[in-house]
């Protein structure tokens, strides 16, 4: 009984502290929990790997900000690196002002890491990868891109005229884009699904935060999206798949965190069990 009272009256700060330790310790002493790739992740990977010819275009939507960066940033990096490794062209697009900073950081990072590990096949900004300038309007932007991408943006995110960039050669609208991977933790995913996929038939994959993952499963089932990366785990699975190809030496942000994620989950499961026992015992005692 003492124990039950202890649980019910536990100061929350103890839980915070233990949780912090659960996360920090695996970073210092990695265990390497086994990783299994799930079908929604694999189908995006396979699509980029097998279904897009060389020179094809992958559009990545960076519609997130620092608050969900921990989950979505690793996805952006790994998908972009994978596309580059297959000699595809990568375009970043964002419907939110803060997304531009995120995308630029990804581009810098991926280009630097790629050129470090593949000096014989260097990639260049403006030739292989770029960011389309941020233009306000959300759904209006998505719709206009279906007609003419160059006109929607005019410039890239670095102030260059899009029509002069090599990476934009032959790209007119969604017809010339082989796959879009939308990374967002908000309902902007729906905007892309409704307008770009629904109206223009753009092939789409979703990368989303774990919070929204459950919600977007239904769009996988309806085949509106070909696959989904859900949370840090989804990013880690993708890193795992790309790692088997051994072409990219960038840091595996998501995979490093997986041990910590697993140990935190174990801690939470224990808490939920203890909490429920305490709740039912207390309820029973009060009932008597």
């Amino acid at each position: 009984m003492k124990f039950i009272n202890f649980i019910n009256n536990l100061d929350k700060r103890w839980i915070y502290l233990i949780l912090a330790l659960c996360i920090i310790i695996p970073f210092l002493f990695p265990v390497g929990f086994p990783m299994k790739t799930t079908p929604p992740v694999k189908s995006i990977y396979d699509f980029i790997e097998d279904s897009i010819p060389e020179g094809g275009v992958v559009l990545i939507g960076a519609d997130y900000d620092p608050s969900t960066m921990a989950e979505l940033h690793p996805m952006a990096k790994v998908v972009a690196a994978h596309a580059l490794s297959n000699n595809l062209r990568v375009l970043f697009v964002t419907l939110y002002p803060q997304g531009a900073g995120m995308a630029q950081d990804v581009i810098d990072n991926v280009l630097r890491e790629w050129n470090k590990s593949n000096p014989d096949n260097p990639k260049e900004l403006g030739k292989d990868i770029t960011l389309l300038a941020y233009v306000p309007g959300v759904s209006a932007v998505v719709l206009k891109m279906g007609e003419d991408i160059l006109q929607t943006f005019n410039e890239d995110g670095y102030g260059n005229k899009l029509s002069e960039l090599e990476v934009m050669k032959g790209i007119k609208n969604y017809n010339n884009i082989n796959l879009m991977v939308e990374l967002a933790g908000s309902s902007v995913v729906l905007t892309w699904l409704i307008y770009a996929n629904g109206r223009y038939g753009l092939k789409m994959g979703i990368g989303t935060t774990a919070v929204s993952a459950a919600e977007y499963y239904s769009y996988l089932q309806s085949k509106q999206a070909i696959g989904m990366l859900g949370g840090l785990k989804g990013a880690a699975e993708y890193e795992h798949l790309l790692d088997e190809k051994k072409v990219y030496g960038g840091r595996k942000d998501a995979s490093i965190g997986m041990d910590a994620q697993s140990s935190a989950h174990i801690f939470f499961i224990i808490l939920i069990i203890l909490g429920n026992i305490a709740y039912f015992v207390k309820k029973r005692k009060e009932g008597k």
Partner: peptide, 13 residues
């Protein structure tokens, strides 16, 4: 109308 489209894209408008 358009240059250097990938043949696999099947269509241009």
């Amino acid at each position: 109308v358009a240059t250097d489209l990938l043949v696999s894209s099947k269509q241009v408008r």
